[in-house]
Structures are given as structure tokens and as C-alpha cells.
Amino acid sequence: MAEELSLPENPVAEPPSGEDRQRLLSHERHARILDQLAVSGSIGVAAIAAALGVSDMTIRRDLLELEREGRLVRVHGGAMLAEAPASVAMDSEEPRFDARLRRGSEAKAAIAACAAGLVSSYRTAAIDVGTTTYLMAGHLREADHLKVFTNSLRVSTRLDGGAPEVYVAGGRVRPEEMSVWGPTAIAQFEKLWFDVAVLGTSGITAEGFFDYSFEDTDMKRVYLRRSGFRILLCDSAKFQRMSLVQVGTLADINLLITDAEPPSRIAAALAAARVEVRIAPPAAGH
């Protein structure tokens, strides 16, 4: 009698282990993240975490892994698509004030007028050095409720005889820029709190915004630390330009006023940092 054969039952697949399941979920999340990036160009951590039903920390780990693979670039609060690095120009020398004032004069006039319309609604304003902030000050001469704090002797002169109260930091003067800097100036303004700060810049990239000098940068950072609302003025000729010192990241500002739409890489970084972008209309007479 033939020996009875015992056939195995139909095999049932073992459920994946926790590690395998996690790997599968990670793969799915990565695909969804990249799909969303392809549509919008940028994503926020909180939004994609909510859409996928996972924690912000999980998404941050996913973004880190995808960045290591070269699939995306992390920015403050999210990520944007990786792309061929846009060329960034390096300005090694600071042009003279008069030369900068003539360069892009129409754009700067438009930005200055737009910024003044916002700043005039506040009670206390810190105003940085620079050509566009200098032009903006000329629009504030009738703002009799405004107190202006500045380290720019040019700004203070522009407002001389006008309605605002003007307070100038004490310290050492940079002759060409006519800006005040040093530990005394910093200590004075560190004790204050401003409703709004208006900063100029030598250039802006997706990584942040820049200035030519260490001395003026120290005061810019005081304004950033000690202000409730922070406005950056930057004409479009300064997009994709950098200089000696990075003042801060895009997340350090609340509003960018410019004369044209930023290039896609900067625009995505601004959106991820939740920075409002306002395009100034042409100024009257230009």
C-alpha cells in the first residue's frame, strides 16, 4: 500500500514585520511628497503631515532622507524641488552710496513709496541704512504720530524738519555710508522694542539676505530681534546676489517689498518661510 502523502495546506503569507511595514509606508509617503512637489514646487511640513496622517517629526525625517537622495531641498518649514543650482552672483565690494542710489532708481522709488504707505500706520519704526530706506524716509515727513529710530545719518537728515520724532543711535560713524555702529549703538537699541523695522539688503537668495559690512549687519540684526513686524526692501536686480555677510534667513522677515516677481527658487523659499511678497506699483512721476 502506497504511503499516503500529506500535502501542505495553501500557504498564507505572513504579515510584514513592523520594520518591513514601516519601509513600505515610508516609500508611499516619499512618493506622495514628490508628487505634491511636482504639482506645487514646494510643500509645508504641517500640511503634508496632516494630509498623510502622520506626525510632523515623521515628515521631517522623510524630507531629510529625500534631501540626502538629492530629490528635494529642505527650507524653513518645508521643502522645495531640487533643481540645478541657479547662478548666484557675488558682490565683493560695496559701491558708493550715490552710485547705488542711481542704480535701479525707478524700482527703488516704487518700493520706497509702497513701504512708506505701510510704515506710516505704525507708531515706532526702526529704519535701516541703505538707498531705498533713504528714499522711503522722504515719504514719512508728514507722519506726525511716528517715532523713527535709525542708525543712518542720511535717514535722519532726510527727516530733519519733518513731523516724525527722530532718534539716532550713538556710536562710531562709517564715513561713506554715514551709518552709526558699534557696541554703544547696539546697547542703546537693544533696550527698545519697535512696532516695525524696515531693512535694506545688498542681495537675496533662497538661503537668506545679505549685506556688505559686518558693522551695519550688527545693527540690522538688532532690528530683527527687537521688532514686532519686519519688512525687507529689495529691488529685483538684487535677486540671486550675495555679498560678504548673511544677515539672516528668509524666516527672519515677515514681508518682502520688491518691484517684480522673484525667481522660482526664491519664491518657493519665501512661500515655505511664510513671507508675504508685495510687488510695488510704479511710483507717481516715474
Score class of each variant (00 low, 15 high):
A2G: 09
E4L: 15
L5V: 13
E9R: 14
N10S: 15
V12T: 15
A13I: 12
P16G: 12
S17D: 11
G18S: 13
D20R: 14
R23H: 11
H27R: 14
H30F: 13
R32H: 14
A38F: 15
A38L: 15
S40V: 15
A49W: 10
V54H: 08
T58L: 05
I59G: 03
R61K: 11
E65A: 14
L66H: 09
R68E: 15
R68W: 11
E69I: 02
R71V: 10
L72D: 08
H76Y: 15
G77Y: 07
M80A: 09
M80E: 05
M80T: 08
A82C: 04
A84T: 14
S87A: 15
A89M: 12
D91T: 11
E94Y: 07
F97P: 04
D98S: 13
R102L: 11
R103T: 07
A107T: 04
I111M: 01
L118A: 07
L118W: 02
V119R: 01
Y122R: 06
R123V: 00
R123N: 05
T124D: 00
T124F: 03
A126N: 00
I127L: 10
Y134T: 12
A137E: 01
A137H: 03
A143P: 07
V148Y: 05
V148K: 03
S152N: 07
T157D: 12
G161T: 08
A163H: 03
A163T: 06
E176P: 05
S179D: 07
W181T: 14
K191T: 10
F194K: 03
A197T: 07
V198E: 01
V198M: 07
V198C: 03
S202I: 05
A206C: 09
A206W: 01
E207L: 06
G208H: 01
F209A: 00
D211T: 03
D218I: 12
M219T: 10
R221L: 02
R221V: 01
Y223F: 15
Y223T: 05
L224S: 05
L224Y: 04
R225N: 09
S227M: 05
I231G: 09
C234V: 04
C234S: 02
D235G: 08
R241W: 09
R241H: 10
M242H: 08
M242L: 13
S243I: 09
L244C: 12
V245Y: 14
T249M: 12
D252P: 01
I253V: 11
A260I: 06
E261A: 06
A269N: 02
A272N: 09
I279T: 04
A280D: 04
A280G: 04
P281S: 11
